[in-house]
Design a protein around this nucleic acid. Sequence first.
DNA 1: CTCTTACGCTCAATCGTTTTCGTAATTTTA
DNA 2: TAAAATTACGAAAACGATTGAGCGTAAGAG
Lengths: 337, 337
Amino acid sequence: MISMKDIAAICHVSVATVSKALNNHTDISEETKKMIQQKANELGYFPNPAARALKTHSTYNIGVLFYDEANSGLTHEYFSSVLEAVKNTAERRGYDVTFISHFVGGRRMTYCEHSRYRNVDGVVIVCTDFRDPEVAELIHSDIPVVTIDHTFDSCSAIMSDNVKGMSDLVHHIYEKGHRRVGFIHGAASSVTDYRLASFYRTASQLGLSIPDDYVVECAYHDTEMANRRTRELMKLKNPPTCILYPDDITAISGINELRQMGYRVPEDVSVVGFDGITIGQSLDPKLTTLRQDAQTIGSSAADQLINQIEHPKTTIKQIVTVSGEVLAGASLADLRK
Amino acid sequence: MISMKDIAAICHVSVATVSKALNNHTDISEETKKMIQQKANELGYFPNPAARALKTHSTYNIGVLFYDEANSGLTHEYFSSVLEAVKNTAERRGYDVTFISHFVGGRRMTYCEHSRYRNVDGVVIVCTDFRDPEVAELIHSDIPVVTIDHTFDSCSAIMSDNVKGMSDLVHHIYEKGHRRVGFIHGAASSVTDYRLASFYRTASQLGLSIPDDYVVECAYHDTEMANRRTRELMKLKNPPTCILYPDDITAISGINELRQMGYRVPEDVSVVGFDGITIGQSLDPKLTTLRQDAQTIGSSAADQLINQIEHPKTTIKQIVTVSGEVLAGASLADLRK
DNA sequence: CTCTTACGCTCAATCGTTTTCGTAATTTTA
DNA sequence: TAAAATTACGAAAACGATTGAGCGTAAGAG
C-alpha cells in the first residue's frame, strides 16, 4: 500500500503538504496541489481508513441496524430490498456498509456503543424493534441517524406512505363493489397505526361501515396466525367479501387457507395483501396488493443520511414519504359485474 | 471512550503494561494482569479498532461479497438466509460484517483492493459471478476466503450438497412412479453442473431414460423464461409427467403457467422445485422441493473463515458439504395409486 | 562474592494521517 | 525603505494501540 510518505518523497515535499494538498487546504499553492493530486492518482493512492479514523473519527462507513428477534428480517423481501438499495446507494457515494449488532469481541454492547466503537459516520435503522431503549439511545446520540418506516421527532425518517397506500387500496376495493371488508392488521407498530387509521378513515369517507369483529390483529409474516384469523373471520354470521392482510406472505397463505375451507378465491372471498413481493405476481390468481417502493425508500435513506453526514449544517432533518402503487390482481373479485 | 492511557493511569502502570496484560503476554505477572483486566472490564474498555488496525492490520471485521448484476441477490431467500446466518455467527464470535464492493470514495477498486483497504480479516463470498477475474484475484491473495456454493482449489468452500440433494429428489420422484422427468436447469455455474450431473447419474442408476429435449436451460429466478420452457416441454409429443425447476420461484411460476395452459397440478403434471423457500410450503399444492440448509451453510462458512483467521496454521482448508432435505408436497403426484 | 539468568516492568519507536504553529520568502503598505 | 502582511510550506505533536529492547532487582550457580 502506498502512503503519503511515498508521495511526499516522490514530490519532494513534506507529508504535511501532501495531506493538505489532498484535502484541498488553502495554504498550498495551486500548482503544488495539482502536482501532488496527480501523482497520488497515478500511484493509486488511497488514504488509510484506520489512520484517518484514528485522527478524525470519521470512516467512510455507515452502519445498518437490521435486527429481528425471529432472525428472519433479512429474508423478508421488503426489508432485504430496502437494504439492497441502501447498500447500492451508499457504495455509489463512496461509503461502505457495516451491520450494527449487539456483540463484539465476545462482549455485549449497546447499538450506540457499537456505532461509536466502529466509528461509523451514521446509521440507517432499517428493521428493528423501535421500542427498544437501545434504539432510543442511538437516535438521541450525536450520531446521524435515519430511520425507515418509523418516525422519531429527533431524526430524519423515510416512510413508505402507508396512509396513502392503505387509502388507495380501500378505494380500489370499494370501486370493485366490495362493502364488507375485513382487515387482519399487523402487530402494534407505527406502520400498523398508520395503516389502521387510514383504513378506518377511508372506510368512513366512503360510507363503509366496519364491524368491530372485522378488524383483528396478527403478527406480520405469521402464516399460522393469519390462517386462524382467516377462519375466525369467515365464521362470523356475516363474513366479509374481502379480507385485507398485513402483508403478501400472510395473504398468500390466507388464499390457501380459504381454499381448504372450501371457498373459491376470488369468487367467494377476495384477498388483498400488502408489500408487492414478486412471487405474488406469479401466482394464480395474481395478488392484489400495494407495492411498496423499497428501492426508492432505501436509496433515499442512504442519500439523506450521507447528506446529513457531509453537510450537517445545511441538511435539514426531514420526513420523506414514498408512495407505493396498487397492483390490481385477480385475487380481488369485481362484484359490479 | 476510555483508552489504555486511562487504565494505565488508574492502575499506576505504563500503557505498555496495560497492552501486554490485556493481550496476555507472558512478561507480565499474573497478579498485575488480573488487576488490569479487571479494571478494564469495570471501565468498559474496548480497544480502539482504528488504532489496532493501524498497527496490526487486523480489524475484527469480515467482508461479505454479495454481488449480483441484477441487483437482486439480497432478495433471494436462499442467499439472504445464508447472509443472515453468516452475520449472526460472525457477531457471536466477535466479528462485524461489512459488504465488499467495487467503489469507495468515488473511485473504482477491485474486490481485493477494497478488502485490503478496509483491512478485513477475511472474506466470505456468498453470491457473485465466480468467473469474474476480480474474484480470482481475491481468492488467490493472502486474505483468508471462504466461498459458498463454488469450489476453487485454493480456498475453503461450503457447499450445499447439490449432488445428494438432486439424487434424493430424483429418487423421490421415481418412487412416486414417475418415469418421464423433465429438468429445467439453471444457467451455467458449478452448482448447475453438480445438479445436472447428479440428475443424469441418478436417472441412469434408476434406469430412467432422459430424452435430450427433456433437459433445457433457464436462468435462475427468471419466471418468464421458465414459463416459456414449460410451454416448450409440454408441447413435446411425449411430454414429461414431472418437471424439475431450477428453484422454487420458477417452480411456483411454472405451476401457474401449467394451469393457464389447462393442466391440473399435480393430476396432469407434477412440479418439483429447489431451495425450500417458506412461501412454497404455504401454497396449495405444497411444493415438493429440496430445502437447502442455508442456516448451516452460512454459519459454517463464518466459523470456517474465523477459524482460518484465528488459527492460520492449524486450520485446514476444506470443502464442507451441507445436506438438504426433501420436502414432500402435493405438487408431486403419486402415480402408483 | 561475582556472574548469570529470569522476571516484571518501562521506554520509545511505530503505524498513516491530520493539524497547529512556526518560519522563511515574498509582497504590500506607510 | 523599513515595517507589516501575506503566501507557501515544514516540523512536530498528536490519535490509541503494539512490541522489541533495555534495565533494575532478586535468586541460583560457580
